[in-house]
């Protein structure tokens, strides 16, 4: 049996409300809150980045898995905001966690699906018998240009998953990936903020790829939406995952637990992985979970998980996603936010 043996999430404490951003740019806050279903988003502290978020999430995953970090043979981090253009984030993360040096490490980038990619490769290396454990992390301190629609969603957080074969808490039954050249959203080398194709990011991009992967996964597994207790899709805003769930035949109830975007924002590579972590926090033995990520450019990774009886042993060993989402929030005004996100031009 191959699957998740430990999982952990982390979100920064800072928040900015959609209405704070809207006020700054003279926009109608209600249209954002109702239209995109985004109330507020997480913001990384000045001392937080993809690396520190990955370490915090991975520590929680290790607390749950209770394995020797030295037994981890690979660690992959998917992110759109790796602090270094050249030098893998994972090099720092493994040293902070006491993993390695006999370990395979790589930084992944595939817009918002880099995290699920890391999970996919980690799981398959374990499945191939190459190593006992492998860790896949999706983490981001997402960028959104000032005044752009993305500014309301681009948030910070991450989730880490340790894949293994013993004491599996969620078995991976099926996977499927779906990819094509679709320029819906991109960031050129050296640019601070991504660009996107506006409404082109919808049907030809998000919906086509998520539906593509999801449909193939359902066919492959010979399962139907009603077989699942939970479903989670990439969450660029509140609306898209609800809409794609509806088109595929999932109910609001199935989406509810993993649909954390209205109060968290889109953590890009960490989006569907944090949604999955929120589900695993409360899942019961036997529950089936359907997950499909989406990364612009574009592609989707789909997973079908079956929760095992091991789950109840590990759930309380580390903080849950809801703990981070609901507790100890610190609200920023736009000026503080601009300073935190280095949007102010300084003398350097």
């Amino acid at each position: 049996m191959v699957g998740i043996v430990g999982f952990g999430a982390y979100l920064p404490r800072y928040r900015i409300k959609a209405e704070t951003i809207a006020k700054q740019w003279g926009m109608d806050a209600n249209s954002i809150i109702r239209g995109l279903q985004l109330n507020e988003k997480t913001v990384p502290g000045q001392d937080e980045d993809t690396i520190t978020i990955s370490v915090a999430a991975a520590k929680n995953a290790l607390l749950r898995a209770q394995i020797d970090p030295q037994d981890i043979g690979a660690l992959y981090i998917g992110s759109e905001s790796h602090p270094y253009a050249v030098k893998p984030s994972g090099t720092i993360v493994i040293d902070a966690l006491g993993i390695g040096p006999h370990v395979h490490v790589a930084s992944y980038e595939f817009a918002c699906k880099a995290g699920s990619e890391a999970m996919y490769v980690a799981a398959n290396l374990v499945k191939a018998g190459e190593m006992k454990y492998a860790m896949g992390i999706g983490a981001d301190t997402s960028q959104g240009a000032p005044g752009d629609a993305l500014e309301y969603s681009a948030s910070a957080g991450g989730a880490a998953f340790i894949m293994g074969t013993e004491k599996v808490v969620a078995e991976i039954l099926f996977t499927h990936s779906y990819t094509s050249d679709t320029p819906d959203f991109w960031r050129r080398e050296g640019e601070d903020y991504p660009r996107h194709g506006g409404r082109f990011t919808g049907d030809p991009a998000y919906f086509k790829h998520v539906m593509g992967a999801a449909t193939a996964l359902l066919e492959k597994s010979k399962m139907k939406p009603s077989d699942f207790k939970y479903a989670v899709f990439h969450m660029p805003n509140g609306k898209f995952p609800q809409e794609v769930g509806k088109r595929l035949g999932f109910t609001k109830e199935q989406l509810e637990v993993g649909w954390i975007v209205p109060w968290m924002g889109n953590t890009y590579s960490g989006s569907s992985p944090t949604g999955l972590a929120a589900i695993l926090d409360v899942a019961k033995p036997g529950d089936m979970i359907f997950m499909v990520s989406f990364g612009s450019g574009a592609g989707s990774d789909g997973f079908i998980f079956k929760v095992t009886k091991e789950i109840t042993k590990v759930q309380n060993r580390a903080p849950k996603l809801k703990d981070y989402l609901d507790k100890d929030k610190i609200y920023l005004d736009y000026g503080e936010y601009a300073k935190f996100r280095k949007k102010i031009k300084l003398n350097e």
């Binding site: 000045q46 001392d47 937080e48 980045d49 520190t52 370490v55 915090a56 520590k59 350097e348």
Partner: peptide, 9 residues
């Protein structure tokens, strides 16, 4: 906790 302390420029 593990955090960024400073940047070298």
């Amino acid at each position: 906790v593990f955090r960024k302390i400073q940047d070298d420029g």
